[in-house]
Write a protein that binds this DNA or RNA. Structure first.
Length: 468
RNA sequence: GGCGACAUAGCCAAGUGGUAAGGCAGAGGUCUGCAAAAUCUCCAUCCCCGGUUCAAAUCCGGGUGUCGCCUCCA
């Protein structure tokens, strides 16, 4: 397994901290609004990382934080004229709901920042005591210059940042590169008591606390969007180094950005889509297919045509499976359990795994699905061979988070009476066709199509499916 | 100003030295009363220039273009 490590800027062989286990942490949302389609990329991608390791047999622990106290939440709470915790609850519930709809498996731990406040204060205090942080006017800042390794993750140098002159002026800081660990609260703002007075934590400390709490001082993979490399992850790493002297994670993984029709998504450009918006019009699996059809580190461009294309592509795979399952005596669950044995399929499996093992080359892995689809559709193959190919497709697809609803692959449940009526009508149509009464035959087909029942004639007779 | 990424067919996209995966769209054949489905076939020399090499989309240099981070934005 090769993983591209942002720290070294190259692919490295993955070696877990503990054999057979994966300790994974990926940054979750700040719950001040519905999350957007760009956030969805990160959530879906790290869901795939988690699933693939599970597929490989690893015992995975996946932790994702929910930031429920933050300036943006306070701003939003003023806008909506509600308490900050009401806002945080509202949008964290929405977050959980949308993740569910996107087919994202719930992480093992999803701690909230406000739940670990004591630990956050403790870690900040430790940094102050060790001389890596200082109190200034009720705020606490991390002293970037106190840590020679600062900047190692992002490759930034403290001097370079000053040259940019875009760093805000803050008289309370000793150095512009210093970052906030604790922020004194203004009147009316939520606050927690601390050794430095009433205030709230900066953004970065919580992730250090939550990740280490569930995964240990140094864990395997820390992930998030590429924009988090600096300052967020750099600042997490700095705090970990300042408190334990050890790296926070062995591998840092970052997914690329999402653009909308070539432009950065932003509210001001009016091209801002929440995951909710997209789910209104497209299936979760089409959205997943869209993301996985491109390498996770590359920027990806979102537009209506592309997502519609993904919808068709994943739809054809579903259709293949549905057709096979209607012919097979086995249920999807039974197919899932078939152990692949034929040499041709073992070779496909090998291709799938080597693609995924190469830094999660999902685009290459997906090509295998279409090869399998072709094998399944080809009725020249024996049913047992086609079932075996379907098994492999289901197994590998599930490893990427597809086929979440196996029941959807089975025939649409309906009362026996309806089923019998449809068969009856098809029987009459067959008679009309024998008489070459094409007008009636076509009328029946059109009328049934109007009811969502699609007929297909073949040599073996007429088959029908319900269109969703 | 500093740091970094990317440029492959109409569109999406994989591919880090050996002669261009896959998908969508399209074209044609078979099958069919027609339709759909299925099936077969076709569809690129990889932004430009120069270099290294027996051999480069792949390495090096130089252009051009697009984009990102440096603003608690995934």
């Amino acid at each position: 397994m090769q993983i591209y490590n942002t720290m070294s800027r190259k692919k490295e062989e993955f070696v877990p901290v503990e054999a057979g286990k994966l300790k994974l942490y990926a940054c979750g949302p700040t719950v001040y609004n519905y999350f957007h389609i760009g956030n969805a990329r990160a959530f879906i991608f790290f869901d795939v990382v988690r699933r693939y390791f599970e597929y490989l047999g690893y015992d995975v622990t996946y932790v994702q934080n929910i930031t429920d106290i933050d300036d943006k939440i306070i701003t939003q709470s003023i806008d909506e004229n509600k308490d900050f915790s009401t806002i945080a609850d509202k949008y964290s519930n929405a977050f959980l709901e949308d993740c569910q709809r996107l087919g994202i498996k719930t992480p093992h731990y999803q701690p909230r920042a406000t739940e670990v406040m004591d630990d956050i204060i403790r870690i900040i205090d430790a940094q102050v005591k060790s001389g890596h942080a200082y109190e200034s006017g009720g705020d606490v800042y991390f002293d970037a210059e106190s840590l020679p390794a600062y900047g190692s993750l992002s490759g930034k140098k403290i001097e370079d940042q000053m040259a940019g002159a875009r760093v805000e002026e803050n008289k309370l800081k000793r150095n512009p590169a210093d970052f906030t660990l604790w922020k004194k609260s203004k009147p009316g703002e939520p606050f927690w008591p601390s050794p430095w007075g009433e205030g709230r934590p900066g953004w970065h400390s919580e992730c250090v606390v939550m990740s280490q709490k569930y995964l240990g001082e140094t864990f395997d993979i820390h992930g998030g969007g590429i924009d988090l490399v600096f300052p967020h992850h750099e600042n997490e790493l700095a705090q970990a180094l300042a408190t334990t002297g050890k790296p926070l994670a062995n591998y840092w993984m970052h997914n690329g950005f999402l653009n909308i029709e070539g432009e950065k998504m932003s509210k001001s450009l009016n091209n801002f889509f929440t995951a909710r918006d997209i789910l209104e019009q497209h299936s979760a699996e089409a959205i997943r297919f869209f993301f996985l059809s491109k390498h996770y580190r590359s920027p990806i461009d979102f537009n209506r045509e592309i997502i519609a294309e993904s919808e068709r592509a994943i739809g054809s795979i579903y259709q293949t499976l549905k057709t096979l399952i209607s012919e097979s005596a086995k249920s999807p669950e039974e197919l899932m359990k078939i152990q692949v044995q034929s040499p041709a399929l073992l070779s496909e499996l090998e291709t799938f795994k080597s693609a995924m093992d190469d830094d999660f080359n999902t685009a290459r892995a997906i090509a295998v699905f279409f090869d399998l689809s072709r094998l399944i559709k080809n009725k020249n193959n024996d049913l047992s061979e086609r079932e075996e190919a379907a098994a492999l497709l289901l197994q590998s697809g599930t490893a990427l988070g597809f086929f979440g609803d196996l029941k959807a692959l089975e025939e649409t449940p309906m009362p026996d009476l309806s089923r019998q009526l449809i068969e009856l009508i098809i029987g009459y149509r067959a008679n009309a066709r024998t008489d070459k009464n094409w007008a009636l035959s076509d009328q029946i087909r059109d009328d049934l199509a109007g009811l969502g029942i699609e007929l297909k004639d073949s040599k073996e007779g007429c088959t029908w499916t319900i269109k969703g």
